[in-house]
Amino acid sequence: MGVTLIGLIIVAASAIYVAWPLLSGAEADDASEISEASALEKEKDSALDAIREIDFDLRVGKISEEDHAALRADLEKRALKALAELEEGATEPGLQAVEGGGEGPKSDGAAGFCPSCGNQFKKGASFCAGCGEKLPKSARGGTRRRA
């Protein structure tokens, strides 16, 4: 008797729990928008991580200035592209330009990313607004150092 009762409870609980979203017409957030955003976030983070690494490689002397600049330009392009798409709707002429022509951002916006924390910083900045670390000259040059 007891076993039958427990069995019935398990069956009923499973069925109700699984069918509930169909019965209640589940509310949900816009899945695709969230997904898109989280994918782009990851895309951006991935590029920023890579930038941080090669910046450090440059300081350690594992990579030549020239190669560093070329790699960094490539990665920045990827990060900026993800950022631009992430903030789609906002006005980003500069970022669009990056995607299109490969020229640096023309607006007074971002000059690059802090090698330490990945925060975006403005042209001419000497210290990162995110973590306060001193920005190395090579990073300050930012996107203009394109090969």
Partner: peptide, 21 residues
């Protein structure tokens, strides 16, 4: 169809509970 997807997610949790049992 979001309600179907959510039902799938619930099924995933139910599956865990049932194998646990």
């Amino acid at each position: 169809d979001k309600s179907l997807v959510t039902s799938g997610t619930h099924a995933a949790y139910a599956f865990s509970a049932l194998t646990g049992i």
